[in-house]
């Protein structure tokens, strides 16, 4: 009796699951899992949790955040790629989608993901100590040119986005820096505060409290436009260096996800991103709201993919 009840229960459950997978008309009819490739409490995680929270009003089912960390993001991103393309396991994609494949560290390529919406983007910025001898980016670059290898630039790890930002600046200007990898952006900023290195190329968001306290100063940002938080800081482009390097985070799904599910998620992501509470949360976290719908997001991904393929080859890091 008990067994038959259980068995029939299992049959019904399976049938429901299959129905859910096959017909997208009633999508979503169960909670959605959002895979985050970085650990809880980090920037990517905070964006994801803020998104999941704000999305409640725009999806009939809740979004649950699951952190799958390891391998510089490769573990979580692989899990997103390998998920069943039914819209119930989506992912928080990061710029590493376009970087890791060219380092031989990932089994996926950028084409394994279908973009839904970019939510956040942060540029790189050249930051030095407040009492450093350079007042402008020109002075800094002149010094670096006159003293090859003397300027030590801290980054968040070899082959990570902020390392490549510094390398891109080298490429554009012809100077050479001494790149010092740290275990993340925070330790690099700590080393800069302690005067153990000359500069960092992390995002303005990661140095904002030190800049406001007058301990550090930003010389330039590597973006198309000036930062809203620091409108007085010039862009490298203004100064004649054609370098824009930004990290981004956004919702992606595995390729082959049915179009109607993609459209459903796109609409929900747009509504969520426009939610004032979501924008406020990002602002509080010093993160920049940078919503881009799927077509624009796809362009960013393809452009970065080509850029990093080129950079990794030049660095000799491509495998």
């Amino acid at each position: 009796m008990k067994w038959t009840t259980m068995l029939s229960g299992a049959v019904v459950a399976t049938a429901v699951a299959f129905a859910g997978a096959a017909g997208a008309a009633d999508y979503p009819n169960k909670p959605i899992e959002l895979v985050v490739p970085y650990s809880a409490g980090g920037g990517t995680d905070l964006v994801s949790r803020a998104f999941a929270d704000a999305a409640k009003a725009h999806l009939p089912q809740p979004i649950g955040v699951v952190n799958k960390t390891g391998g510089a993001g490769a573990v979580g991103l692989s899990a997103i790629m390998a998920a069943r393309p039914n819209g119930y396991k989506i992912g928080m994609g990061t710029v590493e989608i376009t970087m890791l494949p060219h380092m031989g560290l990932a089994s996926f390529t950028v084409d394994d993901f279908t973009p839904i919406a970019r939510l956040n983007a942060e540029p790189s910025a050249v930051t030095v100590k407040a009492d450093a001898p350079w007042q402008t980016i020109e002075e800094f670059m002149d010094y670096a040119e006159a003293n090859p290898n003397a300027v030590r630039i801290g980054n968040s790890g070899t082959g990570a986005i902020w390392h490549l930002a510094a390398v891109a600046l080298e490429e554009a200007s012809g100077v050479t820096f001494n790149h010092i990898p740290y275990d993340g952006a925070n330790p690099a900023v700590t080393a800069l505060l302690g005067g153990h290195i000359e500069a960092v190329t992390v995002s303005p968001a990661e140095v904002v409290s030190q800049v406001q306290a007058g301990k550090l100063k930003i010389l330039a940002v590597m973006n198309e436009d000036r930062s809203q938080t620091f409108p007085d800081v010039p862009t490298l482009k203004e100064k004649g260096y054609d370098v824009t390097v930004t990290t981004w985070r956004g919702i992606v799904v595995p390729k082959n996800t049915p179009d109607d599910i993609v459209d459903e998620l796109r609409a929900a992501a747009k509504a969520t991103a426009d939610e004032q509470s979501f924008r406020d949360t990002l602002t509080k976290l010093n993160l920049t709201w940078a919503y881009a719908d799927a077509p624009d997001f796809a362009k960013v991904m393809q452009k970065d993919d080509a850029f990093f393929a080129d950079m990794m080859a030049k660095l000799g890091m491509s495998n």
């Binding site: 391998g71 510089a72 573990v75 560290l105």
Partner: peptide, 19 residues
């Protein structure tokens, strides 16, 4: 992952062993 070079060591191609 090599802490300075960023390349994998003794992982046998398994991303789970990067850390």
């Amino acid at each position: 992952l090599d802490p300075m070079g960023g390349f994998p060591r003794f992982t046998g191609g398994m991303t789970e062993l990067f850390n």
